[in-house]
C-alpha cells in the first residue's frame, strides 16, 4: 500500500531538503518513491521509461526544494504534480504532439502552490479518501477522470475517443469532480 510510506513529517523533511542534506534525498525517495513510480508507470506503461521519468521527477524536486516553506509546504502534491507532468510530457513527445492545454507548465510546479490548506490531511488519509471517493463514481465518470489525469486528454479529445457528444463528456467530468470534491474535502 502507498499508505505505508506516506507517514512522517513533511516540514522536517523539507527543512533537510532545503539544506541539501544528502540523507534527505534517501528519505524523500523512501517516502514517495513507490507512489511516484506507480503514477508514472500508469501513464507511460513502460517500466524502463517510468524509472527514467521517476528519476527526473525526484531530481527536479531535489534541485528546487530550497523554495519550499518548511512550515507550510506539502511535498506529496508537488512531487506528484511534477511526476505526472513529466509522464504526460513524455506521452505527448512520443506522440509528436506539442504541449497543449494541460496544467504542466513549469509554473504549475511552483512550490508556492503547494502549501498546507485548512485540510491538513496526511498523505495516508488522502490516499484512502481519494480511493473511497473514486469508488463512488460510475464507470463513465471514472473513465473520463482517468483519461484526463493519466492520459492528459482534453474534453474534446475524450469526446472523440469515446464517441460521445462533448456536452455529455463535460457533464460526466463535472459530476465526477463535484462528487470527488465533496467526498474528499468533507469526508
Amino acid at each position: 500500500m502507498f499508505a505505508a510510506v506516506l507517514t512522517g513529517s513533511d516540514s522536517e523533511l523539507i527543512e533537510r531538503l532545503r539544506r541539501r542534506d544528502p540523507d534527505a534525498m534517501s528519505d524523500l525517495y523512501d517516502r514517495y518513491g513507490r507512489v511516484v513510480y506507480s503514477v508514472i508507470l500508469r501513464i507511460v506503461r513502460n517500466a524502463a521509461v517510468a524509472e527514467e521519468l521517476s528519476q527526473e521527477a525526484f531530481l527536479r524536486a531535489w534541485n528546487r526544494a530550497e523554495g519550499f516553506d518548511a512550515d507550510r509546504g506539502r511535498i506529496a502534491p508537488w512531487l506528484l504534480t511534477i511526476a505526472r507532468n513529466r509522464a504526460i510530457d513524455y506521452l505527448r513527445s512520443t506522440a509528436g504532439q506539442q504541449q497543449a492545454n494541460t496544467f504542466e507548465l513549469v509554473s504549475s510546479e511552483r512550490v508556492t502552490l503547494f502549501v498546507q490548506t485548512e485540510d491538513r490531511m496526511l498523505e495516508q488519509e488522502q490516499a484512502h479518501r481519494i480511493r473511497a471517493a473514486f469508488s463512488k463514481l460510475n464507470e463513465n465518470q471514472r473513465q473520463v477522470l482517468e483519461l484526463a489525469y493519466f492520459e492528459g486528454l482534453s474534453q474534446s479529445e475524450m469526446a472523440e475517443k469515446l464517441g460521445q457528444p462533448l456536452g455529455t463528456v463535460k457533464t460526466w467530468v463535472r459530476t465526477a469532480l463535484t462528487t470527488l470534491r465533496e467526498s474528499f474535502h468533507v469526508a
Partner: peptide, 12 residues
C-alpha cells in the same frame, strides 16, 4: 494530485 493514488501500486 490525489488522483495519483488511484494508480495501481507498482514497485520500482
Amino acid at each position: 494530485s490525489s488522483l495519483a493514488y488511484v494508480a495501481p501500486e507498482s514497485k520500482p
